[in-house]
Design a protein around this nucleic acid. Structure first.
Lengths: 188, 188
DNA sequence: AACAACTGCAACACGCCTGTCGCAGTTCTG
DNA sequence: CAGAACTGCGACAGGCGTGTTGCAGTTGTT
């Protein structure tokens, strides 16, 4: 698609720094000026524009980047095969390792993309088939799942809710338990 | 505090329209220009500024307005007395009646205010005492509660998750069930 | 009816962010 | 080492939202 012309080595490093900085900065202030991103990357605003002509282009690139990571997370977790509950927890672990502000990520142009969302729906379907999820509306399940992802992500590491020594694992465990409690069989 | 000088009758009506419009418009686009608010209110941007000198002032007024409504909701639901689970559901009903975009409301300057949040914590504490909630971290409980409030609010009326004839009641029921499932005893 | 209050209109100044440019200096590449 | 590629710097133009103002016209108040 985009026939990216070959870049010089240092230039390529800088593009990476820009994306990295953008992810960090825009995560907690989505409307932040590009200058802040540039500063965080140790570069000039002009240079940012040389890589990404427009702000929209940067966001698009950022979106694609995240999309890839999420897709990767699904594969690493083997979320499409085997016992779905364990798959869910493994997936959560991978996602929390990304240390991405999900609230921000979802606000991105088409992120998570159709593909990732579909895989998530599939996993939730399998959980439903296994009886771990009783809620029927896919949109609802997806929304709750994403919401809890955000909240667990924002939870400070010092929270008493996070027991174990391995923080990432503890988050994943909390997430899984909470999600299944929310969508699972708890008829009152 | 603010010694609001007596306004003419129509002017007072317009202030109300402005707040109404602002709530609607800013709910799904928090950064929307004041001109859109003015249009939605059938007024001019200048007039908006005559009532609320600055954008911040408008948001503050909006925040106070919502704060009052939430406080009222707590009282109407009798959330401080009696069986906490029923109180929670009554509270949810009152809140959904407000038809406010909670994601937006929370983003407002100090909204929900300290007072409302404290009352919410109290209610959650009472649920914990009753054994309906097992999660220990107050911040976590609060976060999940608010998040689910948002998601249920955003759920389209046509969702199969909303059974009963009374939509508001159905939402409240779904919210309560989901929240207690998420925070309640579901040890795996 | 007479006065005061309020609004629309239109214009203005201001600040902020975006996007572009040329130039001088630095860093990579072959 | 020589040329190409890349960056910082500084400046500029343009767009957009905010906040203000004066004036003419309308509407409420007494």
């Amino acid at each position: 698609m985009t026939v990216t012309k070959r870049l010089r080595a240092d230039a390529e490093r800088n593009t990476a720094r820009i994306l990295e900085a953008a992810e960090t900065v825009l995560a907690d202030e989505p409307g932040a000026p590009l200058e802040r991103v540039a500063d965080a990357a140790g570069l000039t605003r002009a240079t940012v524009h040389r890589r990404f002509a427009t702000r929209a282009a940067l966001l698009e690139a950022l979106g694609a980047r995240l999309e890839d990571r999420y897709r990767q997370a699904f594969e690493d977790a083997g979320a499409l095969t085997g016992e779905p509950r364990a798959a869910l927890e493994r997936l959560a672990e991978r996602v929390f390792e990304l240390k991405v502000g999900h609230r921000f990520a979802v606000g991105l142009p088409g992120t998570p993309g159709e593909e990732v969302l579909t895989r998530l729906d599939d996993l939730l379907d399998r959980l439903r088939a296994a009886g771990a999820v009783t809620a029927v509306d896919r949109a609802w399940c997806r929304a709750v799942c994403l919401a809890l992802l955000e909240r667990v992500h924002d939870l400070p590491a010092a929270s008493p809710e996070l027991g174990g020594a391995d923080e990432v694992r503890a988050r994943a465990e909390l997430f899984t338990r909470t999600l299944l409690g929310a969508l699972g069989p708890g008829a009152s």
